[in-house]
Design a binder for these strands. Structure first.
Length: 201
DNA sequence: CTTCAGATGCTCT
DNA sequence: GAGCATCTGAAGA
């Protein structure tokens, strides 16, 4: 198959964040159903130098332990008491960094994703719901039924039930860059242009 | 279209 | 105890 290997994640985090656009997340449920979606928006977090990163200054706690795992590991945490955020660990093992997956569009089994999100089929979604389907980290995790139970999974092993395929990356001219969202507390790091997304949608 | 309050529980000081 | 890499529904322009 065309599953992205550890070498893909074992690179500079900004490079990986750009390169993840258009890649396919595959989430295999307990019953074997494969939910598939294409990544449309990402953000980079680099502990070495980034005050917005949970592992800023190599801070090591129970939560940030996953960021020190090998590249290609899933880092999933709870935010605001009720939502989850999906990240992919990057750079060499021991270098705490990751890419937050902020948005995606469905490719396969959209009806199940729609059931997780809105408890209905895709065809019954309103235009507002279509527009706001998986365009946020909490929405994406809800749609793909991801929680902290999946924290630490190996994204390069199909057996983990969560992996990433090569997909269809956009042309460089379709990639937009901007400031990251929701990190106003991070001082100078709040202005880093570490957010990437595919134009349209 | 926009702003805004409130939900809710884990993490770290 | 304070704050958080968010989302939703309601209300107003």
């Amino acid at each position: 198959m065309d599953i992205l290997t550890r070498d893909f994640y074992n690179r500079d985090t900004l490079t990986v964040a750009r390169d993840l656009l258009g890649r396919e997340i595959v989430r295999v449920l307990e019953d074997g159903t494969a939910l598939r979606c294409s990544i449309t928006e990402t953000e980079a977090y680099i502990g070495r130098m980034d005050k917005a990163c949970h592992a800023y200054g190599y801070r090591r706690t129970a939560r940030t332990e996953t960021l020190f795992a090998p590249p290609g590991t899933a880092y999933i945490y709870l935010i605001y008491g009720m939502y989850h955020c999906l990240n992919f660990v990057t750079e060499r093992e021991g270098e705490p960094a990751a890419v937050l997956i902020r948005g995606a569009v469905p490719i396969e089994n959209g009806d199940i994703i729609a059931k997780n999100r809105y408890d209905c089929k895709m065809e019954n979604m309103s235009s507002y719901q279509r527009k706001n389907f998986l365009n946020g980290p909490g929405k994406l995790c809800r749609g793909l039924a991801l929680t902290r139970s999946q924290n630490g999974l190996d994204l390069t092993a199909p057996a983990s039930g969560l992996y990433v395929r090569a997909g269809t990356p956009p042309s460089p001219s379709q990639i937009q860059t901007g400031k990251r969202i929701g990190i106003d507390y991070a001082q100078e790091a709040a202005d880093f242009l570490w957010r990437f997304w595919v134009e349209n949608n």
